[in-house]
Write a protein that binds this DNA or RNA. Structure first.
Length: 201
DNA sequence: GGAGCGATGTCCT
DNA sequence: GGACATCGCTCCG
C-alpha cells in the first residue's frame, strides 16, 4: 500500500447523519500506529446507530458518563466493553450535543498482519477471514481498548489511531439490517462492501 | 456448518 | 439484578 497517499478524513465528513456517514466510510482505512509498525485495514462493514428514535443505540437512553462521546463533537472514538470480553469501536457523528455514531464491524487486513495476529493471541497462519471480521475481533487485532483509545480524535493523522482514505475508488455498497441486536433489529442500517469476503456473517 | 451456550465486566434501573 | 452493538467452544448432523 502507498502510505504517502493516506489522508486523514476531515471532521465535517462525520458531522452528518450516521446513515450518510456509514456508507461513506466503506473503502476507507483504519490506521493504527503500534510502535514502529503500522496496522492498516480497509473498512468493509459498518453499522449506523442513531439517537432517541433508535432503541438499539446506546445513546437512546440519554446521555450518561458511559456514552458521553456519542453526544460530543463528531469524529471521536466511542469504545465500549461488551459481554465481559470484547471491545467495540465506534466513531461519533453529528454536531456536539446531538448523539449518533458508526460501529466498525469488519476490515480487510492490509498491513501489519503479524502484529494483528499477535494482538489477537491466535496461532500463526490463521484463517485471515476471521482475523478482523466482527467488531470484537477487529478491535482486538488493532489493540483497541477503552482505556487506551476512548475519546480519541480519529481525524488526527498524527494520532496512533485514525481513519484515512487513499486514492482507491469507492466500493459498491449493500444495505442490510443490523446484526447481533434484539431491539430495532429490522432497521436497514448495516452497510457492507458488495461481495467482500471479510464481511462478518 | 449451524444451533446452543458459557464466560465475563460494566452500566443502568 | 439483569441486559448486553460478542466470541469460541461444543455437540449434532
Amino acid at each position: 500500500m502507498d502510505l504517502s497517499r493516506l489522508q486523514a478524513l476531515p471532521r465535517p465528513l462525520y458531522d452528518r447523519d450516521p446513515r450518510l456517514v456509514g456508507p461513506d466510510l466503506l473503502g476507507k482505512i483504519l490506521v493504527r500506529r503500534q510502535g514502529r509498525k503500522l496496522l492498516t485495514g480497509r473498512i468493509v462493514e459498518v453499522e449506523a446507530y442513531l439517537g432517541a428514535d433508535d432503541p438499539a443505540a446506546h445513546a437512546s437512553i440519554g446521555r450518561t458518563p458511559r456514552n458521553a462521546v456519542l453526544f460530543g463533537p463528531p469524529g471521536h472514538a466511542y469504545v465500549y466493553f461488551i459481554y465481559g470480553n470484547h471491545y467495540c469501536l465506534n466513531v461519533s457523528c453529528l454536531p456536539d450535543g446531538v448523539p449518533g455514531g458508526i460501529l466498525f464491524r469488519a476490515v480487510e487486513p492490509l498491513g501489519g498482519l503479524p502484529e494483528m495476529i499477535k494482538l489477537r493471541g491466535i496461532a500463526e497462519d490463521p484463517d485471515l477471514r476471521r482475523l478482523t471480521s466482527g467488531p470484537g475481533r477487529m478491535a482486538a487485532a488493532f489493540g483497541i481498548t477503552r482505556e487506551r483509545d476512548g475519546g480519541k480524535d480519529l481525524t488526527d493523522a498524527k494520532s496512533d489511531l485514525y481513519i484515512a482514505e487513499d486514492a482507491s475508488a469507492p466500493p459498491e455498497v449493500v444495505i442490510t439490517r443490523r446484526i447481533g441486536i434484539t431491539k430495532a433489529a429490522n432497521m436497514p442500517l448495516r452497510y457492507i462492501v458488495a461481495g467482500n469476503r471479510f464481511v462478518s456473517r
